[in-house]
């Protein structure tokens, strides 16, 4: 086994780092060169000298932050070189534009999955199986209690939930980028016919998706409606930050729901304070994390993001794969 210091990818206080390419992956502090896996804001930091991502990710980021940044884009599969390291983006199935990042130095391949999922999602490219020697996998839902239902089932549940309380306004909270568009897409395939309103941040993302060629059903922008009493029976989609906020006071009789993978656990559902939880996630569940490791043919695996104790122990017991842990260097 290699010494930690000789790993191609290391873990630093700014995030994952490829020293030879002098590039950070989704850094959490401003750095010289940042490779961005996807456009969620917890994977983006202002103030880097140079950003590199897929075209879709760049478009969405610029739309979200509302200004120009120095960002270079590459298509999926297209190989580019930094200091002799071959680098390429590959679809990760998380949201539109999201990617895994492959690094090749001589004969050695490293793959960072970024956030990924294996479930069907028509609003982004499907996860691509990439063979690698070293795999750095996310493990947000790294316990076998997580096993996602088919998204169509969740969409049907949401539709039933709205229709069973037509005297109320149903407010569904979910992330405005990715989750909202996926849910809208799934709902469009059910027989849901009620009005759907979206918060401006979601409305904007819908348009952005449309611009990038992803068809999202038409929704009404929430701000256009001053009088909110005639919204009974309709579905309103808001980002979670607005839960318990004063803007909810404009609605008379509401029921609230939250769409997230965490909602598959009753205690978390109860603690979240929403009336109803819908389990749907843009991350891989336990079985898909294991399947992805297997299909990548990696002999060495690191986990980051989330609970990884169980995954580490499980792989050590059940497989011949090396489970490695980053040595944290300040």
């Amino acid at each position: 086994m290699k010494e930690d210091s000789s790993y191609l990818i290391k873990y630093t206080s700014s995030g994952l780092y490829c020293e030879l390419a002098d590039a950070w992956i989704d850094p959490i502090k401003p750095v010289k060169r940042a490779l961005i896996t996807h456009a969620h804001m917890d994977h983006f930091t202002f103030g880097c000298d140079e950003y590199i991502s897929t075209y879709e990710t760049a478009v969405i980021i610029k739309e979200r932050i509302g200004k120009e940044i120095n960002i270079k884009t590459y298509d999926y599969e297209k190989e580019f070189k930094i200091n002799g390291i071959k680098i390429s983006f590959h679809p990760s199935g998380h949201i539109l534009g999201s990617s895994q990042i492959k690094f090749i130095l001589a004969e050695e391949i490293w793959l960072i999955t970024g956030d990924f999922k294996r479930q069907k999602d028509e609003t982004c490219k499907e996860y691509e199986i990439v063979k690698t020697d070293y795999l750095i996998s996310e493990s947000t839902f790294g316990l076998p209690i997580f096993r996602w239902d088919e998204p169509q089932k969740t969409a049907t549940d949401i539709s039933k939930w709205v229709n069973s309380s037509k005297e109320k306004t149903s407010i569904l909270f979910c992330y405005s980028l990715g989750k909202a568009q996926r849910i809208l897409n799934e709902i469009s395939k059910t027989n849901f016919i009620n009005d759907i309103y979206t918060h401006s941040s979601i409305y904007r993302m819908n348009n952005c998706y449309k611009k990038l060629g992803i068809d999202i059903i038409k929704t009404k922008k929430l701000e256009q409606t001053k009088n909110n009493s005639d919204l009974n029976g309709s579905l309103i989609i808001l980002p979670p930050a607005l839960n318990k906020s004063s803007s909810l006071k404009n609605f008379k009789d509401i029921q609230t729901g939250f769409a997230s993978g965490w909602m598959s656990i009753r205690a978390l559902r109860k603690r979240s304070g929403y009336d109803k939880g819908f389990s749907i996630s843009d991350h891989a569940d336990w079985k898909d994390i294991l399947r992805t490791i297997k299909e990548s043919k990696a002999k060495n695996v690191f986990f980051h993001h989330g609970d990884n104790e169980a995954l580490n122990k499980y792989l050590k017991e059940k497989s011949s794969i090396n489970v490695l842990e980053f040595e944290y260097k300040k």
């Binding site: 316990l143 076998p144 122990k313």
Partner: peptide, 13 residues
């Protein structure tokens, strides 16, 4: 594995 069930229990309660 029983340990894995116990790890899950900590999350689920």
């Amino acid at each position: 594995p029983l340990w894995l069930i116990d790890s899950c229990y900590l999350k689920v309660g």
